[in-house]
Design a protein around this nucleic acid. Structure first.
Length: 470
DNA sequence: GCATGATCATGC
DNA sequence: GCATGATCATGC
């Protein structure tokens, strides 16, 4: 063996030699057929580290207590991101019910993890390139209490007989994701059902595995590649108890409720001008005690929390504008399933920060910080959003992105109108242009050209949220 | 005064 | 040069 499997340093040194290698390099160009991406992990384990495939509950490097996890990355428009959640271990409902966190299978796997990040090449898996090695330790991480809470949360459901109601959304970092092949048998019954630990409700539950959420490993990846500097809210506000996180953030932010943006600019010695679009982001970082307003907020990225400022008309609580998200590629959108969709991720959790003014163009003296709040879609809201998302998906598939020109008394002389549903025809979300200008375009699968599109939250819906939050 | 398509401008 | 947050501007 070319490394000492009982010694962490030796393992890491040997792992570091992988950086810059492709899968082909590792296989020394042996003609091994690779059908799917899942096999990349096996190849690295077997052909580099000499670990035979196994389903042992013990860490991969047993003597050193280190677990090996191979994480695929994908190239996005302007950055490289983690592609998917990282499976940690299968859940055995009966065993889980009897464990404690400290003795748990999940914690045993998470204590020390050697993460290997590689850039997944979907055209030729063998060209996939190893980018980075990272030894991560649970007890060095300041948010072990969040992971522990996730685990306890899942365990409680299982003990109480509610394993059939588990979902990823009840957890922050370590989540019970569906595992198994999926699908239904010929009687229409789900295939991946297993017996619960507590059978008082007489229902089977879906097979699940503990996984680290994509946002969590993605933040780690970003930090490792030094693309961004991070500060932690848990550190800056000294949070050490789960459930206090959101409250503490809001407490600190809402101390400044009612102050004008100008006042806040003075209080925090900022030089805000009315056009800068990061004014609220800057104020938030000051309010939560960050050293630098340039730092990214670690937990917001880990937990998939998005911050959205809403400029609102004071007299009627009506937002001046709808809220936009990132633009999409139509051809990717129509291939997505709601459960794994990009948009579902965007609205996972949002911190809304209202700014009240009487006019859009009010000066900084006449714009006031409102009461901030966190929002995640309720079951009912998610149902509607899913419906509307699917409706737009069908519309795009049906070719409703085809545009026609309508005469207009503007410089250009016309505007382009598609057949997609309008904001007034939906309840929560709508699809609308969001390009740099009319040359910033996208093509659908039928070859129709249209200005880049993105989802927006409807104004009336945001108004409802604001009113509820009063 | 609102809805919706169009575009600006900062920041990286 | 581009993504993104923010906002404009026409027409009803």
């Amino acid at each position: 063996m070319e490394y000492d499997n009982s010694d962490a340093t030796s393992i890491i040194n040997y792992a570091n030699k992988l950086v810059g290698k492709t899968i082909d390099d590792i296989l020394s160009f042996q003609n091994i057929n690779i059908k799917n991406q899942g096999i990349v992990g096996n190849i690295i384990e077997e052909h580099w580290f000499g670990i035979k495939p196994n389903s042992s509950p013990l860490p991969d490097f047993e003597k050193a207590g280190i677990e090996l996890k191979i994480i695929p990355l994908i190239q996005q428009k302007t950055k490289i991101s983690v592609k998917e959640r990282t499976k940690i271990c299968s859940i055995n409902y009966s065993k889980l019910a009897l464990e404690t966190w400290d003795s748990s299978h999940a914690k045993e796997k998470l204590n020390k993890v050697l993460f290997i990040y590689y850039l997944y090449d979907k055209n030729n898996i063998k060209n996939s390139l190893i980018k980075k090695i990272d030894l991560w330790e649970l007890h060095h991480d300041n948010n072990e209490f969040i992971i522990k809470h996730d685990w306890l949360n899942v365990q409680k459901k299982v003990k109480d007989g509610y394993a059939h109601e588990l979902s990823e959304s009840i957890c922050k970092v370590l989540a019970p994701s569906r595992s198994g092949k999926g699908g239904k048998d010929k009687n229409g019954k789900l295939k991946d059902l297993v017996t619960q630990a507590n059978q008082i409700y007489n229902t089977d539950a879906l097979k699940r595995a503990f996984s680290l959420k994509q946002s969590f490993t993605n933040q780690r990846w970003n930090e490792l590649t030094k693309k961004a500097k991070y500060e932690s809210i848990i550190d800056s506000l000294k949070i050490n108890e789960f459930g206090k996180f959101e409250d503490t953030v809001l407490e600190n932010l809402n101390r400044y409720e009612g102050k004008s943006i100008q006042e806040l600019s003075d209080i925090f010695f900022l030089n805000i001008n009315n056009r800068s679009k990061n004014q609220i982001a800057t104020i938030i970082k000051k309010a939560i005690g960050f050293k630098s307003v340039k730092s990214n907020i670690k937990e917001f990225e880990q937990l998939g929390i998005m911050v959205k400022t809403i400029n609102v008309k004071k007299s009627n609580n009506y937002p001046f504008e709808a809220i936009s998200f990132q633009t999409m590629k139509l051809q990717d959108f129509i291939k997505e399933k709601w459960e794994e969709s990009t948009f579902k991720e965007y609205i996972n959790k949002i911190l809304f920060v209202p700014v009240y003014a009487e006019n859009k163009k009010s000066s900084l003296n006449e714009k006031f910080l409102g009461k901030s709040f966190f929002w995640s879609p309720s079951t009912e809201e998610e149902k509607i959003i899913k419906q509307e998302w699917k409706r737009y998906k069908s519309e795009v598939i049906d070719g409703k992105c085809k545009v026609h020109r309508v005469k207009l008394n503007s410089k250009k002389g016309f505007k382009e109108v598609s057949e997609l549903s309008k904001e007034s025809q939906t309840t929560i979300i709508h699809l609308r242009p969001h390009g740099r200008d009319s040359n910033d375009r996208d093509n659908d699968h039928l070859g129709n050209s249209i200005v880049k599109q993105c989802f927006w939250l409807n104004k009336t819906f945001v108004q409802k949220l604001l009113t509820q939050n009063f």
